[in-house]
Simulated assay, not measured.
Amino acid sequence: MNPSRNDVTRCRWCSADPVYQHYHDHEWGVPEYDAQRLFEKLLLDGFQAGLSWITILKKRERYRQVYRGFDVQLMAAQSDADLQILMQDPGIIRNRLKIQAARQNARAWLVLAKRTDPAAWLWQFVDGRPLINQFASHAEVPAITPQAQAMSKALKKAGFSFVGPTICYAFMQATGMVMDHTLDCFRYAELGCGTFTVEQQ
């Protein structure tokens, strides 16, 4: 699947930025079942709060560098001094609350992993399989759903932060728990019928 930038119809939210288009064409809405990658995407969506997704997407590689591939053990063990060093890094979002939340969420993830499979636990909110929506336009796509509200409530109870229902729904869209490519988008024909490609990013 290598469509040129001009010969396909994409979801309206996708701009002409090639980074955004690649993300839309290869990642967004593709079911993700790997626990490590789900952890990364959950944290990245938390970093996005109040910002545009393209801002986070362009900083993703730096996040992967400073967090050593989103190493949960490493992140959970960070000291306050480590967090202060991150506050000086121009390659990431230098928001103290978000940086502290990343450490808190890594610790919460480890606690969760001791009692269950985090991937299966997250997927339980859609009964373990993607919800395939059929939205004709971007205006029909919700920002919050009951499933996202339930996930948010459970994550907060488990000790996570920056996991409000809007963030959770964006996470569910990104990881293919829900498939919200609109009907006119070329990816709908592939993801909507369960035939899709996934690439490691």
Rank of each mutant, 00 (worst) to 15 (best):
F70T: 09
I85C: 03
G46E: 01
Y20M: 00
A81C: 06
H138Y: 11
K58I: 00
K114Q: 15
L74E: 15
G164W: 01
E40K: 10
P146A: 07
E27L: 04
R94P: 01
K156T: 14
V30I: 13
Q200T: 11
G176A: 14
A150C: 15
A174S: 08
Q149Y: 00
F171L: 11
A120P: 14
D45L: 10
V163P: 13
S137P: 00
A119T: 08
Q21E: 07
I99V: 08
D82Y: 05
A139F: 04
F39A: 00
P130W: 14
L110M: 02
S152G: 10
C185N: 02
Q149F: 04
V30H: 02
G29R: 00
A106S: 09
G192M: 02
M179K: 13
P142N: 08
E190I: 06
C193Y: 13
A102F: 07
V8L: 10
R68V: 08
C11M: 10
A158G: 07
D17I: 02
C185E: 00
L43R: 02
P3T: 06
A148I: 09
A35L: 11
V30F: 03
S4F: 08
V111F: 07
P142S: 02
F70I: 10
I144R: 05
R60H: 06
F125Q: 01
R103L: 06
A143M: 12
G194E: 10
G128F: 15
V66K: 11
W109L: 12
Q173S: 11
C168H: 04
A154T: 09
A189Y: 12
R187N: 13
R37I: 10
Q65V: 13
M172V: 14
A136Q: 15
W123T: 05
V19H: 10
A189K: 05
I85D: 05
I132W: 05
T55N: 07
K41I: 05
R64D: 07
F135S: 03
